[in-house]
């Protein structure tokens, strides 16, 4: 997964404040958190930064598919083992007779389910990472054997 430092390396590093943020590093962090768009950096659209812009669009492509909580699922890596489904504390609390005891989810309020052999995110708003007072829970990523789940 791309880091804020990698994004910073692809910015013009002018600290021009045209994006509304004090530094290019702050812009890189905001870009990763999806609070800013690449187009907000107007100098980057100039011809002399064309190569950097192209590279930045490439590295930001996987981030585009992230949910509101920053969750990215790499379908091609997922085994469909359901470790994340069973380990997720919200799934356990919302579905005590299903995913909490290892069975397939029986409640509509679960965040993660396995469909067609691949994990899918259903209710990102239920996630502990949602909203301004988020908790940086990482049980779904820590229990993934193939690193198919990541957070931006």
């Amino acid at each position: 997964m791309v880091s804020a430092m990698e994004i910073y390396q692809l910015t013009p590093k002018l600290n021009c404040k045209k994006c509304g943020l004090p530094t290019c590093m702050a812009f890189a962090v905001a870009l990763l958190a999806r609070e800013k768009q690449i187009e907000d950096c107007t100098p980057l659209l100039e011809p002399k930064y064309e190569a950097k812009l192209k590279k930045l669009r490439e590295v930001m492509a996987p981030v585009a598919g992230a949910t509101e909580t920053g969750l990215i699922i790499h379908d091609e890596r997922c085994y469909g083992c359901g470790n994340c489904v069973v380990a997720c504390p919200v799934n356990v609390a919302n579905d005590p007779k299903g995913s909490a005891i290892g069975l397939g989810p029986k409640s509509d309020k679960v965040i993660l389910i396995v469909e067609d052999g691949v994990v899918k995110c259903l209710n990102p708003k239920e996630c502990r990472r949602f909203g301004p007072n988020r908790i940086l829970c990482n049980l779904c990523t820590a229990t993934c054997p193939s690193k198919a789940i990541e957070f931006v």
């Binding site: 997922c78 469909g80 359901g82 067609d116």
Partner: peptide, 12 residues
Amino acid sequence: TRTKNLCRKGFG
């Protein structure tokens, strides 16, 4: 058409 709870191996 659609399966739920099958792992990748089972889906295969």
